[in-house]
Write a protein that binds this DNA or RNA. Structure first.
Lengths: 192, 192
DNA sequence: CTAGATTGTCTAGCGGTGCTAGTATTCGAT
DNA sequence: ATCGAATACTAGCACCGCTAGACAATCTAG
């Protein structure tokens, strides 16, 4: 029945319009600027329409976060396959720097996305798998713990890079230092 | 002039009452629950009184953050002097876990506190100095960069520990792994 | 001890927020 | 052509941060 499909297609397009607009708005003016009224205005619908597609405002940023996790996973996989752990580390930090609002939706803002385990989206697990694969050559036992250490260390750098709490000139050096220390290969960190 | 002092003392007490109440409220119900109305009700004053002591709501959490930074600095100094880098790392993560709302005010919530440099409160600098001193024995050149790496790595663990995004059973192991890798002493991580 | 100025506090209200009930309208199915 | 479902809107609730303006308490000066 293509008639039903027509409606469903329109519905899906509207949903994606909302999502895309929310993401743009957040990336431009920050998540605080993404209000129901402003978002509704931007997509040229009234506010209740948003609630026909998402349970609430939070669900919208959660949906953006899910998109981001899929993107990030791809980015990490490619980087790791091309350049191993160092490339993955820089790719992670670059993604966070290039898409601060999406990154915030993924890992900073309160979210209903379940990470722990059972029903956590497959995307979440496969993102973490990239960290596991990256540190595997350097693990001396508990690979998963080392992967968690790597991820949280990168996350810390990502969020503190955004606020003016670390020297902006040494972003690269921090990433290099982290990688060399975690991997045990103490190459001198490249400067600025 | 003790008359003026009387007033000033009362004023200072009120200010501290507000601060203490805000902190308790945040620690109990989260910062979202700290609204002008609720806070005013809790201290048994009307809302405008809050603005006689603080420029706005944000200034209140900033003041709490400043308290926390002083506390944290003391904690870190004692730990470092007693047990070096490993003790400092665990003390940091323990403080974050024990005072999540204060920690959030310090390093997660948007804040007007200037960290960068010039007029940043002395407390901020002396807190960072603890990290510098802790990694100094293990630095191979750029001590400050290594200190930044340590701090951000700990920060990452602190915030991800709070959300259910890392295995709660391996908190201790993650801290140990980070310390041993950063310091170059690869002692096997203690388990759960 | 009283008059005036200062300080403290309150009530009331502005524009904004997330979200929803109730109503009108459009559209596909019969 | 008609019915019913899906879709959209207007209007409004309770809450938010914040502030103007009125009123009461207190200190200062004569």
């Amino acid at each position: 029945m293509p008639t039903t499909s027509r409606r469903e297609r329109a519905r899906e397009e509207r949903r994606e319009l909302i999502l895309r607009t929310a993401r743009e708005l957040a990336e431009t003016d920050g998540w605080d600027a993404v209000t129901t009224r402003r978002l509704a205005e931007a997509v040229d619908y009234s506010q209740p329409v948003l609630y026909g597609h998402f349970k609430n405002m939070n669900a919208i940023s959660d949906a953006v976060a899910l998109q981001g996790i899929a993107e990030l996973t791809d980015v990490l996989r490619e980087a790791r396959e091309a350049g191993g752990l160092p490339a993955l580390a820089h790719a992670y930090l670059d993604y966070a720097a290039d898409h601060p609002a999406v990154y915030e939706a993924m890992f900073v803002r309160p979210t209903a996305l379940s990470f722990g385990t059972p029903d956590s989206p497959a995307a979440l697990k496969s993102a973490f798998d990239q960290f596991v694969a990256a540190v595997e050559p350097f693990a001396d036992g508990d690979t998963e713990t080392l992967a968690e250490v790597l991820w949280s260390a990168l996350h810390g750098q990502a969020v503190l890079n955004q606020t003016t709490r670390l020297r902006p000139t040494h972003r690269h050096a921090r990433a290099d230092t982290l990688v060399s220390r975690l991997s045990g290969t103490f190459s001198a960190p490249t400067d600025n």
